[in-house]
Design a protein around this nucleic acid. Structure first.
Length: 205
DNA sequence: CGTCGGATAATCT
DNA sequence: GATTATCCGACGA
């Protein structure tokens, strides 16, 4: 479970999909070419959040894993919103201007009939961050601190008893190198797991 | 259902 | 100047 607490309220997500990045030894990792201002947090203590900005408009969040001095991390790719669905939906719809805002269209009646399905609220690393209101201000947050604005918690004991489906694995999404390393993990048949997409190189100028 | 291309800017070379 | 751990709307079947 990943919890995000702000003045607006609490949003909690049950993680369903992650990817592992093995620091400087991994060509797909942000740390492959060494330490930079952006990835500095990856070299810090484990259990902290590494938040980065990509594709000119999206944030993604990782959990730092290796001991201090190493740069391993796990990218949180998707989850199911358990608490605070309305707040999560508001954040996803608001999206600074250009996301899902249809001019002139009458607002959909009930939340269940909205254009944004509940399963899509945190289906993808950037969507997850948007639903939880995560940006670089949270870079370096100690996720193990129960009082932190963003924190990681175990599910309540027994809540998943007998219901845990199998964990599948395969290649990581959107990476141009290290494709042969199957370090994306997800819960089998879970509707909130994102769709696999290979890396695409865009047109040069 | 699926594939395709544009948006858009921090970060690094 | 090139690249990018992505998303969304459009379009075709």
């Amino acid at each position: 479970m990943l919890e995000r607490e702000t003045a607006d309220g609490l949003v909690a997500v049950r993680l369903t999909e992650v990817e592992a990045y093995a620091g400087e030894a991994d060509p797909a990792s942000h740390a492959y070419r060494g330490k930079t201002p952006r990835n500095a947090v990856m070299y810090g203590p484990p259990g902290h959040a590494y938040v980065y900005f990509t594709y000119g408009m999206h944030f993604c969040v990782n959990v730092v894993c290796g001991p201090t001095g190493t740069a391993s991390a796990v990218l949180l790719r998707a989850g199911e919103v358990i608490v605070g669905e309305d707040l999560a939906r508001r954040r996803r719809m608001a999206g600074n201007g250009r996301s899902r805002v249809v001019a002139g269209a009458p607002p959909a009646p009930g939340p269940a009939r909205g254009p944004l399905a509940a399963r899509d609220l945190a289906r993808g690393p950037a969507r997850l961050c948007q639903a939880l209101g995560i940006d670089r201000a949270l870079d370096g947050t100690d996720l193990c601190d129960p009082a932190a604005p963003l924190r990681l918690r175990s599910a309540a004991p027994g809540s998943l008893a007998g219901q845990q489906p199998g964990v599948q694995f395969g290649p990581r999404v959107g990476v141009s190198v290290g494709v042969e390393t199957p370090w994306r993990f997800w819960l089998q048949a879970d509707p909130t797991v994102s769709v696999y997409r290979p890396h695409v190189r865009r047109n040069r100028v």
